[in-house]
Write a protein that binds this DNA or RNA. Structure first.
Lengths: 256, 256
DNA sequence: AGGTGTGAAAGCGTTCACAGCG
DNA sequence: CGCTGTGAACGCTTTCACACCT
């Protein structure tokens, strides 16, 4: 484990201590812990047990303790974790001690909503610029920011020190936008377009696909239905193909 | 190699056949394969190899083959997969042969965008109703649908056979909305509110938290920065991390 | 006593590599 | 041959259970 070191400690933005090499699964949960901790802090809690924090974050306590142990974090045996200290520590590890600038590309339906989404701002980010390729949208003001043409990306990226790019364009434009973001030095991209993007090594890419989430739920609905529909028959694990499958007729030819 | 099903068998009329019990990780990728397959179909491909489909879907071919093998799916050795057949099969497994009705609760910033999001409609769903608790929003028309008051949920849920609920309210309202959805029989919920929800066993719950995605990216930005900031020693060995994911996803360079 | 930190075990998911079919 | 389907190996994640600290 590491030695005593005060994480978000004031000053010293330059000499960054090496970050522990956290498992991805742990990294993905830290933001959830952080949110729970902020709630606890607001409600006056000064310490919290692994059990308490775990339930606030929707995980079990063993997992939480293991996750926090990777940070080399300090709980106090017999007591729990210091809420404020843990907040500092997680915010430090997540790199939230600096408010990173986000560029949002594509101000259509979804982009509009993202541009106005409070959660980005309230949880450590700054939407620094909006872009679109559609001249009709350039100049529009959303939430205090003016939509710029994508061609201005190079200039603005430098001025604003853009750290993260968010793609909310149609799928057809997404790869090109990603390329442009990479070209101006952005190394983290969040993609909302329903398509696979390829980026060079060293660039982090995450994807959110809203329809996919629904389709996963649909699978479970389907499975639940097929289970309850079955009497306890020998469970012939037969999968039938549609062909002339009953139910509603498919209206396929879906696509984008 | 147990009694493996032979899918092709057209369904027995009426009774829904039991679905194979797929690994969650596989389920989560099927929608991606489906999207890639639709693209291939539109561009005139009739068959595709595991290699080809895998790269279109952003995974490696071993994973793809393993996933499809869980469906008991047919490829033809030496040839590949029949695109149209595979589309049918995946759509069947995901339960997309019926267009499920979705209720969206909360038409604020994000809810507005979701209500107008084409992807839901084009990929197998029907937004059947919009709800909000704010009287000022009730009556507003979005994308051809009128916003109703949440109190009407019971009546509307029955009329429209709501299968999936989407929560896009502030965190403070989300648990109450979830309870109401569960009460009217909804067994699948997609939550966009940044909070932990609790639902009874048997109800499927998925969560999308946009700020969390950014925070995960922020961590990797922070880590990259701390590595490059490191004095020479060992630093270079670490940046390139051989054999593997220095980054979030095995989303490697895929040629397109 | 109370609760964290952590080896060890169990469980999943991914990757490898190749048998075997078309 | 080419390519699928799949056992077996591997690595990551979760869970367990308890030593150890306060």
């Amino acid at each position: 484990m590491s030695q005593h070191r005060h994480p978000g400690a004031p000053g010293r933005a330059g000499a960054v201590p090496a970050l522990p090499d956290l498992p991805e699964a742990t990294v993905a949960r830290l933001p959830e812990y952080l949110r729970a901790l902020h709630n606890l802090a607001e409600t006056g809690h000064e310490t919290v047990s692994s059990e308490g924090l775990a339930s606030a974050a929707g995980v079990n306590s063993a997992k939480l303790r293991k996750d926090l142990s990777h940070l080399g974090s300090y709980g106090t045996r017999g007591v729990g974790y210091d809420v404020a200290l843990l907040i500092d520590q997680i915010e430090y590890v997540l790199g939230l001690t600096q408010r990173r600038a986000v560029a949002l590309v594509g101000v259509g339906n979804l982009g509009h909503a993202l541009a106005g989404y409070d959660g980005f701002v309230s949880r450590g980010f700054r939407i620094a610029a909006l872009f679109d390729a559609d001249a009709a949208r350039v100049g529009e003001e959303i939430n205090g920011l003016v939509v710029r043409h994508i061609d201005e990306l190079p200039r603005v990226a430098a001025e604003e020190a853009i750290a993260i790019g968010v793609i909310a364009t149609p799928a057809s434009a997404a790869q090109s936008v990603a390329d442009q973001l990479v070209a101006v030095g952005v190394t983290s991209i969040l993609n909302f377009a329903p398509c696979v993007l390829s980026v060079p090594e060293g660039v982090d890419l995450r994807k959110v696909d809203l329809a996919i989430e629904l389709q996963i739920l649909s699978f479970h609905e389907h499975r639940k239905a097929s289970l309850t529909a079955l009497p306890a028959t020998g469970g012939s694990a037969l999968t039938a193909l549609p062909g002339g499958l009953a139910v509603t007729d498919p209206q396929e030819a879906i696509g984008t």
